[in-house]
Design a protein around this nucleic acid. Structure first.
Lengths: 134, 134
DNA sequence: TCTTGACTTGGAGTCGACTCCAGGTGGTAC
DNA sequence: GTACCACCTGGAGTCGACTCCAAGTCAAGA
């Protein structure tokens, strides 16, 4: 599969795909005789994995480290597992923050709904009565 | 409350606090006679709100827009509500992505645990048998 | 044969979000 | 009164992650 199709399939720009390979985030992709990238199954799985991890905010730095370890073979399995576990914890923490923010947003939206309702009914509210609105 | 204490309390650097004010992400903070920032209650609530929103990845651009609308008064309540609802949807989408990545990480960690177990028992595995390991 | 279009490379540019710096002020402790 | 410290400002620098560009190669179609 050529780069344009990969780009299309995963929603990653051509430049980004090449950039990822250049910096070692994706190991060298299989090429045809003409030197044109021809992604095979493994290449595609790598792209998909990286896309997934990046979408959750894992840093390129840590992903390069992980990919490097994979290339080094089975001796690095313990280290890799450690990295994944560490990133899992970070991810959980991030999810908690998002949840907290979601709660705040929900509350604020709720306050706004009420504010609009009362305004329609002609009820005047002061900042004192709507202290949530910042 | 002076800037150093605010920085300490919310874990935001002095530079970032001043930067936020400079770009209008936080409205001008109350100052004492000497021109020194002296955060009052409302200022603090604004800082906390921004910190919360930023921690979930809301862009500075959209937050500035929101803060501006707040400064303009009650006529902008509908618009503000719209922004919050939009950001809420984005947040939900982001949370789903994080959850998906968490699932993938959990699965991979599980595969690694098994790989380690089998290695300890001396069972040899080929890439074919552990296709998840990228 | 010539053009078109998809690909290649190395390197430079951009963008969001800070972060740092130099030079200056003002208040307190010795 | 001077040393120190926390603060101030405008502007420049940095960092992560792309994104764009120029110049070149190659294969297919008019």
């Amino acid at each position: 599969m050529k780069i344009a199709e990969v780009s299309e399939r995963y929603g990653i720009s051509l430049d980004t795909l090449r950039y990822y390979e250049r910096i070692g985030l994706i190991p060298p992709v299989h090429r045809n005789e003409g030197g044109i990238r021809d992604y095979n199954d493994l290449d595609l799985r790598r792209v998909e994995f990286i896309k997934c991890m990046r979408s959750a905010g894992l840093s390129i730095e840590v992903l390069i480290e992980y990919v490097d370890l994979v290339q080094q073979g089975d001796d690095t399995i313990e280290t890799r597992k450690g990295i994944l576990k560490e990133q899992r914890e970070l991810l959980l923490a991030r999810m908690k923050e998002l949840q907290k923010t979601l709660d705040v947003l929900d509350h604020k939206i709720d306050v706004y709904e009420n504010a609009v309702l009362k305004k329609e009914k002609g009820i005047v509210q002061t900042e004192e009565q709507v202290p949530e609105i910042i």
